[in-house]
Each structure stands twice: as C-alpha cells, then as structure tokens.
Design a protein around this nucleic acid. Structure first.
Lengths: 248, 248
DNA sequence: GTCGCGGCATAACCTAGGTTAAATTAGTCG
DNA sequence: CGACTAATTTAACCTAGGTTATGCCGCGAC
C-alpha cells in the first residue's frame, strides 16, 4: 500500500501513546514504526474485521477511525462491549487463545496496521518495554470492561449515556482527537444504544434530556461538552480506570 | 503457616488447571508448587483483600473459597463484575498498572497463596509456558468480562440469572467442585443480585421462577441443575468464551 | 428531479423490574 | 433455650425504560 505523509504521522501517534504506557527504547520505537508502516491496510465503514469463533494470527493496530467489539445473541440482540480508538490495538495477544470470543467491526472507514503473530512476538521478545506496553493496553482494556459492567448493571440511562460520552472524550484526548470541548461522534444513535444497553428510542430520549439540560450539544456528527465537570458529575464518572496518566 | 495434606492437594489443583491452559514443564510445576506452598494465607468471609485505588505488589492464587471483584458508586450502588474461583489468580500482572481499578472481597472463608511481585516475575521469566499460562488466564478473564457486558446489557432477568448459574457451574467443573448436577452456592441472594444487576427482590422472584419451572433447585447453599441443557437454552448460554478446552 | 432508505424525532402505550414494607425463616451468640 | 440479626419470601404499588408506530429530514441512485 502506498504511504502518505499523514500515515506516517498516525504511526507517530501510536508510538507516542504506547510510550506513555511504558517508556520505549529508541530501538523499540524504530522497529515498531517499521513494522507498522509495512502492514498498512484500509477498510470501509461497517465491515467485520474478525468474527466470534475465528482463529487469530495477527495483531491490528488502529491508526485512524473508530471500531467496536461486539457480541450478539441468537435472536439478534447486540451488545457493543467496547470501542477501539486510534492508537489502540485490536487483539494484541488474542492469538494465545484458540478463537475469538467476540467480533470486531469498523464503525467508520479505518486505517490500521496488521502485524503477523510471528513478527509481533519477535518484536515483543526483543524488547521488554514494548511487550509491557502492549500488556498494559490489555490490562487497561480489562479495566474498561469492568467499568462497562457497572455502567450497564447499576447506572440509570442518563448516567450511562453521560458516562459513555465522558469516556469517549477522555480516551480521544490523549491521541489529540479532541478540539477544545468538542470531538467527532461518527456513530449512529443505534450504535450508542447498543453500547449502553438501551433501546434506540430511549437512547434518543436520553440524548434529548442531556441536550435540554445544556450539558451537551450533539449535531453534525460532533459532540460538544459544554461543562465537562458537570457531565462527569451527572455520570458519576471517575477516570481512574483509564489509567491515562502514569503517577511517577 | 502450617501445611496440611489438604493444602497440598489444593496446590495440585491449581497447577493442574494452569497446565490445561498451557502445558507446563516439570520444572515450572515444581517451582510454582514451591512458591505457592510458601505463601499460604487464610482469610475469613466478607473481607476486602484489596480495594480500588490500592497499589499492587503481589499475586494471589486462590486455593479454596469464593471471591468477587466489585466496583461501587458514590451512593452505594454496587456491581459485582466477576467471581474468582479456586484455582484462579486474583491479580496476576495487576502490578503493571499503578493502582487497582476495582476491589476484591472474599465471599466465603478462603485459602490463597500470595506471591510477591519479584518472585512472580522471576518465575514467569524463567519459564515461558508458565508466563503464557498466567496471561491466558488474564485473557479469559477479559472474555468473561465481555460476556458479562452482554449479560447485563441485553439479557432479561431470567436469562441473566440462568446464565450466571450456568457459568458458575461450568467454571467450577474443571476444578472438581461439582458433584453430579450439583455445586455449592455459598453466597447470598444479595450477592447474586449485585452480580446480575438486579434488585434483591427481583432476583428472588427470578429464582422462584427458575424453581417453579423445575430447572433448578437452590436450597441449603446448594445449587442443583436438573437439566443443564434446558438451563443453557433458557440462558442463551454458549460456553465458548470460557475457553475451557484446548482444541488440539 | 424523485424514489428509496437510513437515521432522527416524538407520541401513545405497556411491561419488566424497582421500591417499600412487612412476614417468615435460618443462623448465631449468649 | 431465648434474643437478635441476617437472609429469604411475598405483596402492593410504581416508574424507568421498552415497544410500536408514524412523520420527517437528508442523501445517494437513477
């Protein structure tokens, strides 16, 4: 695939983000950059990249676009169990288990880098900090999954939606994808409903309510949060679980 | 702490279980066994072993008893986000992140082995299969967490409770803790409610319903599943996500 | 242009599950 | 054994959120 300047800067972004998780040696950064640039792939919106039951033999690192992990029940009920944002990897280490337990779909057009298992393992085995950075990502993912459990199990509709907006905003911020108090929101209300365990109708009602109270503006696929602290209060949102900042 | 014959057999059980995840070398088994026997600790029921916000510097491996991971909201709402059963480890690798994002509490008296971070890391660095076995555990945990998301977000009360019973049964089976079609159920309905995102009253109603249809008997802290396949159907339960059996 | 379709919005109605309260039973500590 | 307390059960009532339906808007295909 042909490389553009913007692809290169996206790769920089991934590396900068991993570097925040664990400081990477310059060799690690260089070899990862090389591997990423070599495996660039583009995909359209609403494509399944991998489905529940599929075996895995590569790692995908997202450079741009939004994806989601989801599971479905036999009768069609669908639950989005997590989003995947630029800079994050799809299935680091998933190849350690025989098959996928969930599916991954694109929600927008995406650019990602695909690294074959053998290549990925030789990268991480030759540099401990790189291995740890990817593992940290997996651990944070696990923490996000737990937060979603309490979101789905114990928060009201309003709190859930507010919480999701806070989380999206805070996860997009460190990869430079928020602009002031706004960020893109390139997904349908159907998707938001599937992520919050609500029906589309009630999701819509809830968004109306958040608009009416002036907490957010959601228009033209853009989310604007007028008062982030107030939204966090409404959501009972506490960002610790995202582990965005190392203490040291 | 003094060792009993039964402690030794519990340690065997942990090692057998990890060995199913990844075949372990005999040296790995021996050194792990030694580390486990050295760190035995007992705790009573309803004790917090570690709380949200605490730093972590050891790994606990459960030999007997039930624990749960939970999160709470400021106003007291509580969500149990997962159970921890004998043979499983509490927080393998959690020390890679600065602090805990959730709390872990005992639900019954427990026996566990505590391995300090440095010891754990030297164990896993000297044997790749051991490291992979523990990582697989973390990955399966992640998969369970996703299944809980769809459980909380998209299943009805009856399906949720039935699903939880199926999961508990299937997770206890490989560690020899089911007897025919029965297993212990040493937790209160309050706990089951917090795990399924229901109120205690409705949890009770739902259990009554499962009893009335003859699917289960729940009495004297013992769960008996009369027809496991029927219960799985009622729950839309599919055990893939537990990755209990390696394909090979 | 207009046909068709996907996404958003709103209304009317309904039900699964929450809440409150009180009775019953089981367990624990003297 | 009796006194407390924690856990279960049941009942009455209520509300958050689901369901069904309908209209509207914007957009791509032709």
């Amino acid at each position: 695939m042909s490389l553009s300047t913007s692809d290169r800067s996206l790769v920089e972004l991934v590396i900068r983000r991993l570097n925040v998780m664990r400081p990477l040696s310059s060799e690690a950064r260089a070899s990862l950059e090389y591997a990423l640039l070599e495996g660039l792939v583009r995909a359209g919106a609403s494509e399944d990249l991998i489905s529940e039951g599929d075996p895995v033999d590569s790692v995908r690192v997202v450079l741009s676009g939004w994806l989601c992990r989801y599971k479905t029940l036999e009768d069609g009920r669908r639950q989005i169990v997590n989003f995947i944002f630029p800079g994050e990897s799809c299935d680091a280490h998933a190849f350690l288990l025989p098959v996928m337990d969930h599916s991954i779909a694109t929600m927008t057009p995406v650019v990602y880098a695909e690294i074959k298992r053998a290549r990925f393992e030789s990268l991480t085995m030759s540099d401990r900090s790189l291995a740890e950075a990817f593992w940290c990502e997996t651990l944070v993912n696990n923490a996000i999954q737990r937060e979603w459990a309490i979101n789905l199990g114990r928060r009201t509709a309003l709190e859930r939606v507010a919480h999701l907006f806070c989380e999206i905003f805070e996860r997009l911020r460190p990869v430079g994808m928020v602009d002031g108090n706004s960020c893109v929101m390139p997904v349908t209300q159907m998707d938001l409903a599937d992520a919050t365990g609500l029906s589309v109708v009630h999701l819509n009602r809830t968004v109306q309510e958040l608009r009416a109270t002036g907490l957010i503006v959601l228009r033209d696929r853009t989310l604007t949060i007028n008062d982030l602290d107030a939204l966090k209060d409404a959501a009972l949102f506490s960002p610790n679980y995202l582990q965005l900042y190392r203490p040291d």
